[in-house]
Design a protein around this nucleic acid. Sequence first.
DNA 1: CGGGCAATGGCACCTTGGTCCCATCGAACG
DNA 2: CGTTCGATGGGACCAAGGTGCCATTGCCCG
Lengths: 221, 221
Amino acid sequence: MGAMGMDTVYIVDDDENFARGVGRLIRAAGWNPHAFGSAADFLAAAGDVDSRAGCVLLDVRMPGMKGPELYRAMLARGLDLPVIFLTGHGDVPTSVDAMKLGAVDFLEKPVGGEVLVGAIRAALARQTERRRQDAERREIEARFAKLSPREREVMSHVIAGRLNKQIAADLGISLKTVKAHRAKVMEKTGAGSVAALVDLCRAGGIHAAAAQRVNPEPLDS
Amino acid sequence: MGAMGMDTVYIVDDDENFARGVGRLIRAAGWNPHAFGSAADFLAAAGDVDSRAGCVLLDVRMPGMKGPELYRAMLARGLDLPVIFLTGHGDVPTSVDAMKLGAVDFLEKPVGGEVLVGAIRAALARQTERRRQDAERREIEARFAKLSPREREVMSHVIAGRLNKQIAADLGISLKTVKAHRAKVMEKTGAGSVAALVDLCRAGGIHAAAAQRVNPEPLDS
DNA sequence: CGGGCAATGGCACCTTGGTCCCATCGAACG
DNA sequence: CGTTCGATGGGACCAAGGTGCCATTGCCCG
């Protein structure tokens, strides 16, 4: 682990002098710099850096894999740390493509300390937000993980607004059994009401199984 | 009105020759071009072009208001048509700022016909999606518009998962009255169940009024 | 092999929700 | 001034949801 709760800023650049300078700047700003001399070096260590708060500064022009290529490789393997591109001789198409890909920023060397620190701050803010949402999502999914397949099935009918008797008919089981499953669902998910259960499911990306949804025309007055 | 259901592509560029050429290209691709010689001209006509399907090609360098400035002015007045920037001599910072602002693309002149058509296609697709969501949203809000203030208040408690008797206590009214309001809500919104009502409210951006939400810890087994 | 658990279901009872009927009061509209 | 409508409420009644207690069957695991 790095020290304390400091965020780590990974640097991938073949220019050692530049990396050293940026590293000092980052440390002075209160973060933990970690430099790699090539895309390959970074990917090799990627397994260890994942899941931590941080962001990456990528040099666009490097021997071997270029910055944008590395970013694509990262996304492909689910490592989506926020990326800031740095380049000595940037051209518009490259910067536009990088931004379309989701880069936080695209800066030209030499870059002012203030600008770089600001970009890193933005990247880390993005990362923090992403992790917060992930945590929330996983917390919710942990609740559904406790449900048996049958219980999940009943739940999908409940959040579709079906009555217990309708669910019983659909599944070919008795009313009592539906009530039993339903009670289990409410207990395991911790939802205190149908409304809360629906909220939970929506937040967890779970949707109703083909239900009588909302009427297209409420009143035809 | 332009002809048929063709999408309109607005062009804001002080170079008449360029605008004419691009106009021909756009027409050949099946869209309806509409050129303006300056940002001021475009904004003057903006009231008429709003709410229609389309996108805008903005020249970055023009006498008077520049492309990015115009884009900001558009956003400020709620005119958020998708924008594609075009420039003769682009620099990286400008393109990056434009992309951060939400531009669909940032292309350098001279631009290949294929590239421009592709960018326009992407912009129009973005616009179509935005309009679809807007329409959905307005359809849902139309339902809530039919509710009286009191009914909306009761509804917010219902989607918070409160029982009728609790709502009655909260609002200081009788159980019977809550039932009456609740029935009106279900009738006017066309929601066939509490689950459907919750869905409708979430889709319409309506949230519950401070309720007993979901328990933090479902089972402490 | 016995215990635990998911899935099933019956019976009884109580709480809630939903829906008829009805009524009053006040504000807004023509 | 009468009508309409929102907000309020009562009574009766039925349907639906929720709970407790109980039982059976089948599977997996130690």
